[in-house]
Write a protein that binds this DNA or RNA. Structure first.
Length: 841
RNA sequence: GCCCUCGUGGUGAAAUUGGUAGACACAAAGGACUUAAAAUCCUUGCCCUUUUGGGAGUGCCAGUUCGAGUCUGGCCGAGGGCACCA
């Protein structure tokens, strides 16, 4: 038995992997395999290991199947942690980021990935963000960029804007000061222009998980309804409302408008209104607080006239549950058929009229009911709509509204514009300048990139760009007049919305990308990453493709990611000591009594549930130390074993150890095969059938992402070879089939596989084993023999055997003879290659 | 509250899509080898039966079917997404 020195062979093969890329330049088929690029936080974690192992399997598999494969990697390098680290360690964000990138790159290389590092891209590199600024200006010129006022979390002590995750219990995480809501003028991408297109585009994404598409659909939130203009009595003004239930118009008993509605400007000096508005703002901004908030209203004492009921007046309220940025910021209330309206009507003693009923003969009294009726039914109490269904009534009333020119059919989306301004240093500067006359214009493209200044002081409060006078003050090129730079930087989601395009031609200087190369490689055939990006990152990237096409017009595709796979998380048990402090797995051991204890003082350890690995709970396993003890292949093999890639996986040291032992055994078996004679013989023929069937199965499983099933099949194949080789002591070889077995391992455990192939003297290592479709037909299969649906026997037969032959076999079978003969068979069900079922009832 | 997904041994899971349930692996128990341990290998894994064999069984209840983990209806449980969206 020979011990394999993983460290030595892995180092050896990794230098080969770096030189040999996955390009089949002669191939007509391309495959763009992309894993979500990492944030350079310092060290790789198990989540990365899982993500990139899955990606590597796909990339290597596709390459072996003749595809020309693009498999790049880069860094999502801008972002807040760099600034925080800079403050803590007195290390410049740039230096900190660069240090992390080189460390993580070194670690990734230990994994033996098939990445083409020549394509490496880093978003904080001015060579990258220069083009991002160009794209921004293109979008600006096309009208996809706009400026709006928006609320931000303002920390009055730090004099800076806080991200949502920096607000803890309503206070700044660092200063502890109560966070204020402040209105700032900010930059937005007009993603809402593409709402319908983004929704429609989902239909063609057949290789996306249904779950992700549903999430995006909900996020876009399309609703079909109509707008109706109500006249305000006396005032000679109109209120435009949006509703999805125009069929309930005859049940309307009030109008409600948002506190931010223009009509409210009338009341700015009204003390009661001021108090009401304050009360509205006091309600917390958390989702929970909003959901549980009491419905309150302010009576304007104004009345609107009902468009279809003569002389009916509807009181107009300002209500806290009406949002200005959805629909028109105004509704009509129909208490019988909307829960919020019912709550509101009861509180303010408003009329409740039933207009839809599932039992028209039994009128309901909603004053005594707590739940509104929102189901389908027949329209009642509604003049010309009476007797119709909800759907019929909707079309009829919309036709009527349009005929009378008091409104129209309208589609609304929940999707909001994408706020891209960040009041931060470590991000891509927004290439705009503010002129003295108040106008804002793009920087001349010849002056790009607008570089981030290096000489900044992050310990001063406020945005370093804001306080950097030299950087901030500039000259407008066209007019030569002094101007001030925009000090906001771009949301890092902008960086990641086009990096996959840059990967196609990272060397291009004059343009963001070489359109020819983009149109060759795009779309990404397989994108792999975490479910946490199911909505924003993917939606923004889809928006970018569309906006780019409109501003550049040369891109072929609208959808950036043809296939999407979202892998599950890596979990581990959590440990706490007797004082409730979190412990890392390395601080814990199993004591003699089988219970966990702290290594340092043997004190008791409380074992918590297995959760996604996170620094805060300390349940992390360091990939590099695992690679050091077991080798990269063992780590890769274990992380693909057992659990399906889309599900969460439990990390266990026993598991990696088992993987390690298995790979060791594969190598040992390889040494045995090597010693055998190479002459063809009957043994090989037997294995031809079996291996062919396995290759077929495994090929299908990889295409379906059932990688855990592949692992199980590989164990079966190993057991098969091991059985034969240990029983058969003659000098017969099964080298040809064993070589195919090792080739199957290439995408999974590349170092070991190449080492074995070298040992066996195999030169051809670039192709996936061929499947012989003729051999598949010759396979022996097992069919089940059932009597009254219960399996009584299993027999091995030739594939494609017909019914009468099987029946004959059954009648001659010793075990079955009596059972079948005894009874009269009333029916026989035969399913080719599966079962035969004798019915005796 | 609304929407989506999922419930299979002690554990992770598999099941050619309506056709042998539990492949493959982890853990456990027993055994072999060994002075001993490690490593390795073998056996076992619900109930009845000495064995041959038979029975129950995929969260629970019903249904469709020759046949249901898979399809239908209802219930229970877990996880995820959205949430004053008119």
């Amino acid at each position: 038995m020979e011990r394999l020195n993983f460290q030595a062979i892995e180092k050896k093969w990794q230098s080969t992997f770096e030189k040999e890329k996955l390009y089949n330049s002669k191939s007509s088929k391309k495959f763009y395999c992309l894993e979500m690029f990492p944030y350079p936080s310092g060290k790789i974690h198990m989540g990365h290991v899982r993500n990139y192992t899955i990606g590597d399997v796909i990339a290597r598999f596709k390459f072996m199947n003749g595809f020309n494969v693009l498999h790049p990697m880069g860094w999502d390098a801008f972002g807040l942690p760099a600034e925080n680290a800079a403050k803590e360690n007195k290390l410049h964000p740039k230096k900190w980021t660069e240090k992390n990138i080189s460390e993580m790159k070194r670690q990734l290389k230990l994994m033996g990935l098939s990445i083409d590092w020549d394509l490496e891209v880093s978003t904080c590199d001015e060579k990258y963000y220069k083009h991002q600024q160009e794209i921004f200006i293109d979008f600006y010129n096309k009208g996809f960029v706009k400026r709006k006022e928006n609320y931000v979390n303002w920390d009055p002590v730090e004099q800076s804007v806080l991200a949502n995750e920096q607000v803890v219990n309503g206070r700044g995480w660092r200063s502890g000061a109560v966070v204020e809501r402040k209105k700032l003028s900010q930059w937005f991408f007009d993603i809402t222009k593409f709402s319908e297109d983004l929704l429609k585009g989902l239909e063609e994404l057949n290789n996306w998980p249904e779950k992700v598409k549903t999430m995006q659909r909900n996020w876009i939130g399309k609703s079909v309804g109509c707008e109706i203009k109500f006249n305000i009595e006396v005032e000679n003004k109109k209120i435009n409302i949006f509703t999805t239930r125009p069929d309930t118009i005859f049940g309307a008993s009030f109008l409600a408008i948002s506190v931010d509605h223009p009509i409210c400007s009338k009341f700015v000096n009204d003390q009661k209104y001021i108090e009401f508005k304050e009360k509205c703002l006091k309600v917390g901004t958390t989702e929970e607080a909003l959901a549980n908030a009491e419905k309150i209203g302010f009576n304007t004492n104004l009345f609107a006239t009902h468009p279809f009921i003569k002389d009916k007046k509807l009181p107009i309220y300002v209500a806290n549950f009406i949002l200005m940025d959805y629909g028109t910021g105004a509704i009509f209330g129909c208490p019988a058929h909307d829960q919020r309206d019912l709550d509101f009507a009861k509180k303010y003693d408003l009329e409740i009229t039933e207009v839809v009923s599932d039992e028209p003969s039994k009128p309901k009294n909603f004053n005594n009911l707590t739940e509104a009726f929102v189901g389908d039914g027949t329209i009642i109490n509604s003049d010309f709509l009476n007797g119709l269904t909800v759907e019929q009534a909707k079309s009829k009333i919309i036709r009527e509204i349009e005929k009378q020119k008091i409104g129209e059919k309208k589609i609304t989306y929940r999707l909001k514009d994408w706020g891209i301004s960040r009041q931060r240093y470590w991000g891509c500067p927004i290439p705009m300048i503010h002129l003295k006359d108040g106008s804002i214009v793009p920087v001349d493209k010849s002056e790009l990139p607008v570089k981030l200044p290096d000489d900044i002081d992050l310990n001063k409060s406020g945005n370093p760009l804001e306080t950097h006078k030299n950087w901030k003050n500039t000259i407008h090129k066209k007019t030569g007049k002094p101007a001030v730079r925009e000090t906001d930087t771009l949301d890092t989601f902008v960086d990641s919305s086009w990096y996959f395009l840059r990967f196609c031609s990272p060397e291009t200087v004059s343009e963001p990308f070489d359109i020819k190369k983009v149109n060759y490689w795009m779309p990404v055939d397989q994108y792999i990453g975490g479910i946490e990006h199911a909505i924003l990152h993917l939606l923004y990237s889809r928006f970018f493709m569309r906006a780019l096409k409109k501003s550049n017009n040369k891109i072929n595709d609208l959808e950036p990611f043809k296939g999407l796979f979202t892998q599950g998380m890596v979990c581990h048990e959590t440990y706490k000591d007797k004082n409730g402090k979190w412990l890392t797995p390395s601080e814990v051991e199993k004591g003699d009594n089988g219970k966990y204890q702290k290594i340092s003082d043997k004190s008791e350890v409380r074992v918590g549930p297995s959760e996604s690995m996170s620094k805060s709970k300390k349940n992390v396993i360091d990939p590099e130390s695992m690679i050091k003890s077991y080798g990269a292949d063992s780590v890769r093999w274990f992380i693909l074993s057992d659990s399906p890639p889309e599900k969460d996986i439990q990390w266990s040291n026993q598991g990696v150890n088992a993987a390690y032992k298995f790979l060791q055994k594969v190598y040992n078996l390889c040494c045995v095969v090597k010693e055998r004679s190479e002459k063809k013989n009957t043994l090989d023929k037997e294995f031809d059938l079996k291996m062919n069937s396995y290759i077929n199965k495994i090929t299908r499983s990889i295409n379906d992402f059932n990688l855990n099933v592949v692992v199980a099949n590989v164990y079966e194949i190993y057991n098969l070879f091991n059985d034969y080789l240990s029983k058969d002591t003659s000098n017969k070889s099964i080298k040809k089939n064993f070589t195919n077995f090792i080739k199957i391992l290439i995408p999974f455990t590349p170092h070991l596989a190449y080492e074995c192939l070298e040992l066996l003297g195999v030169k051809e290592t670039k192709s996936w084993p061929k499947i012989d479709t003729k051999l598949i037909l010759k396979e022996k299969i097992k069919i089940a023999i059932q009597i009254n649906g219960k399996t009584r026997e299993v027999i091995e037969v030739e594939k494609g055997i017909n019914q009468s032959s099987v029946e004959k076999l059954c009648k001659n079978n010793a075990k079955l003879k009596n059972k079948i003969m005894d009874k009269s068979i009333t029916r026989v069900i035969f399913v080719q290659d599966r079962i035969i079922n004798f019915i005796t009832r």
